[in-house]
């Protein structure tokens, strides 16, 4: 009898890039549900639009690069990128904003660098930053978290009209719908010389952080912990990021509680939780050594605090992630684990 020869190992775990990426999508569901509840249909519209554009862009780029379509479209990496970006967009963002962001992410940040596995920068964050610096007005038009079914909530049809036609329903003005986020409020009010306690009385605040936002953060925390628990994401990165952010916020809070927000506010605001579990953990652009991942996460946490507290933007997860992306190869170089049997350093 003649047999085929293949090199060992002859058995493989049932896994794949697709299943890993799908798990990331599942893990985002609780947080997404909270976002949709508080910010309306717009979140869902952004999500679907981004997904469609991402898959289309991915297919076109794969075609142009002469790569097989099926295995790469089936790896769900483009969908993950689309979702990460969509979550970061204001719910009533005009359609072209979403399209432009997704194209920047997939075409510019991913495929021009060589596609899956070769991009040095987190594609979703590149897309987000391109939009943030190019269209600051559109990007800061966040809705006030009213909750679905409340007075100011838009219906699905109304939302689509806003997204695709820019037409607000006659009964509402944009000012009535949108408002500053808790991080915005904190930033501007502290700049006006108010204390944290005074600022906290603003209605945009909830129990520990921004009203509505904190529930989304909780949802992403639940999904993120599951993601880390199933080893689909490295636990060191969220630990490093949230640990350093919490630590540095605690230090400043203890020094001057009147002018620095408490650590729990920082941890539950903006994109901290979401970024720690879903954005910073993108394996392609993160550090890969166990110790390196801790450092990489810690670096992001510190940068987030610096940008929030002293920088020009209310939140800084995207910039922090991109900055640490550049540092990842260097971190990897200096954090190699001790090889079995090598002398202890």
């Amino acid at each position: 009898m003649r047999f085929k020869t293949v090199t060992s190992p002859h058995i493989l775990r049932e896994t794949g890039v697709g299943p890993v990426m799908r798990r990331v999508l599942y893990a985002m569901l609780p947080g997404l549900a909270a976002l949709i509840w508080f910010f309306g249909w717009g979140v869902l519209v952004n999500l679907l639009l981004a997904t469609a554009v991402a898959l289309l862009a991915e297919a076109v780029m794969l075609g142009l690069r002469g790569r097989p379509l099926a295995p790469h479209l089936g790896d769900y990496s483009a969908v993950v990128t689309a979702w990460l970006l969509a979550v970061a967009l204001p719910p009533l963002a005009p359609w072209w904003l979403t399209v432009l962001g997704v194209l920047s992410a997939i075409v510019l940040a991913k495929h021009l660098y060589g596609g899956l596995g070769y991009n040095p920068f987190n594609p979703a964050m590149v897309g987000y930053v391109v939009l943030l610096v190019s269209f600051p007005r559109e990007m800061s038009a966040w809705l006030t978290p009213h909750g679905l079914g409340q007075e100011y909530a838009l219906t699905l049809v109304e939302t689509l009209r806003v997204n695709f036609g820019g037409e607000l329903p006659a009964r509402l003005s944009l000012d009535a719908l949108s408002g500053a986020t808790s991080l915005d409020v904190l930033r501007t009010q502290l700049g006006l010389g108010m204390t944290v306690t005074e600022v906290r009385n603003s209605p945009v605040f909830g129990i520990v952080a921004g009203y509505g936002w904190e529930w989304a953060a909780l949802g992403f925390l639940v999904g993120g912990l599951w993601l880390v628990g199933t080893r689909a994401a490295a636990w060191q990165i969220p630990l490093g990021m949230l640990g350093s952010l919490g630590l540095i916020a605690t230090v400043f809070y203890l020094i001057d509680p009147a002018h620095y927000a408490p650590p729990w506010f920082h941890l539950c605001s903006g994109a901290a939780i979401f970024g720690a579990f879903f954005i910073a953990t993108d394996p392609v652009t993160a550090s890969t050594t166990p110790r390196g991942r801790l450092l990489y996460g810690a670096g992001i946490g510190i940068l987030v605090y610096i940008i929030r507290g002293f920088g020009g933007y209310p939140d800084g997860v995207a910039f922090a992630v991109l900055l640490m992306n550049i540092a990842a190869p260097t971190i990897d170089l200096y954090t190699q684990p001790r090889v079995f049997g090598a002398r202890r350093r």
């Binding site: 790896d75 990496s77 899956l116 596995g117 080893r231 684990p337 090889v339």
Partner: peptide, 18 residues
């Protein structure tokens, strides 16, 4: 598919390699 640098291999390597 291309390596996505997930580090699953690092976790299982009994020689502590990368």
């Amino acid at each position: 598919l291309p390596c996505i640098r997930c580090g699953a291999c690092v976790e299982v390597c009994p020689a502590d390699l990368l």
